[in-house]
Design a protein around this nucleic acid. Structure first.
Lengths: 235, 235
DNA sequence: TCCTGTATAATTGTATACAATTATCCCGAA
DNA sequence: TTCGGGATAATTGTATACAATTATACAGGA
């Protein structure tokens, strides 16, 4: 269940509208709805067995999250992420994940520390077995733990947003075998720095972790690939 | 036009619902609706002359922005900004304004550079005359120019949000006379670094600018003052 | 053929109606 | 008096109805 955990942002996760919100969100992130695609309120409502009202409310929130764009009196479209956006996000995330790691060093709870260690071990195991799906999930979770550990709602919320935003891109990136290995090592180093209470080191490593992730994407040409699906969103 | 413009998160700024959204937002930021206060959909709707539907949609977005909290089947409450939130925001802003200044050094246009210089001069003038209102406005604008100059929609959007978020606090801070003078000097130094193309220096100065602003708030006890209205939000 | 204007259909925007849930108040019993 | 319970009112959640806007199709003329 619930990896991407919007947690408090959408309070009523199990209400009707909450489910609508999460379902649409999932369908966007999983690629069921492509970039630039138009979503009709009535159609989505029928699919989910609800009226347009909760669908519209969900749309409004997804728009603010940046996943949808509602054009007045015209329609609602799946937002495209441009190459430039991805670059900017990784630049920003590099700084903020660094800050997050620094704060986590001071504020992480023993339970969170345990889960982070376990996460690193598990991911290394699955890497050795070539289980890419599990690795992707564990990678997600690693960052979630980090966000939860910094004890800052603001930062947590912000980083989670960005994390989600590049979800589709990241998924492709991680299937690159070499990066999986390198990423695991970086996770381990971050984890150990936090455990050792070395805030400066944790911050720098987390900075680097993002930069490396982005560089890897560039090298593999994954961004260009990703950007293509974006062009037909043109006008 | 329009790739999606996160700048106008709420695209239809001048539509009915858009106006509802901005009006409620303004009323929260200006303090008309106090922290912890319950907002009734029907009441707000009557005040603005609309039905509950657009009000609810606005609520949903304001919830995601963190200004409101909707409790299912109970009500909608104005979210408080805690002392901790303000601290976190300034920590985050310190990093991001630094990044923004760095990027601005590379991407600022001549027109923007001119406006920034003019802004600095004007603010120094008004400072000498004790025109605090104008200074506050120019301070706002200085940061706006900086955000526009970095040529990153993502970063611009983010910083603008935070800027707004601490609007009430900032307004109080700037009326402190000494800080106005110091702030002006810092603006000047940032401006000159950008003009000279010294990205590293601009980044560091912008970092510091935020830290100083926050420290000043602490010294003057403005945060504690601000936090009080927050306590009765209790459980 | 290609453009254009108009009628029609489809879709969004808002208001209203009704259902579900929660809060309030009053009354009676201990 | 104080506590509990139940009826009533108030509020939110969702569905539906209608208005406003936009897209589509088709006919007619250059």
């Amino acid at each position: 269940m619930a990896e991407y955990n919007l947690k408090d942002q959408v309070s009523d996760k199990y209400s009707l509208r909450g489910r609508v919100f999460h379902k649409i969100r999932e369908d966007i992130l999983n690629g069921k709805y492509k970039q630039g695609e138009e979503l009709r309120e009535a159609t989505i409502g029928e699919e989910l067995g609800v009226s347009r009202t909760p669908v519209r409310e969900a749309f409004r929130q997804l728009e603010l999250e940046g996943l949808l764009k509602m054009v007045p009196n015209k329609g609602t479209y799946v937002t495209g992420i441009t190459q430039k956006d991805v670059k900017d996000i990784y630049m920003i995330r590099s700084l903020l994940e660094g800050l997050c790691a620094r704060l986590a060093t001071e504020n992480i709870t023993p339970e969170q520390m345990n889960e982070m260690e376990e996460n690193v071990y598990l991911s290394e195991f699955h890497e050795s077995k070539g289980h890419f799906d599990q690795m992707a999930q564990l990678d997600n979770r690693f960052h979630e733990i980090l966000y939860e550990s910094c004890d800052s709602k603001m930062l947590e919320h912000l980083l989670r947003d960005f994390h989600q935003y590049v979800y589709r891109v990241r998924k492709m990136t991680l299937s690159s075998e070499k990066r999986g290995k390198a990423s695991n090592l970086e996770h381990r180093e971050i984890m150990e720095s936090i455990k050792a209470g070395e805030a400066d080191r944790a911050e720098k490593l987390a900075n680097l972790h993002m930069i490396n992730a982005y560089d890897n994407m560039l090298k593999n040409g994954l961004i260009e690939m990703f950007d293509q699906g974006n062009d037909n969103e043109g006008k």
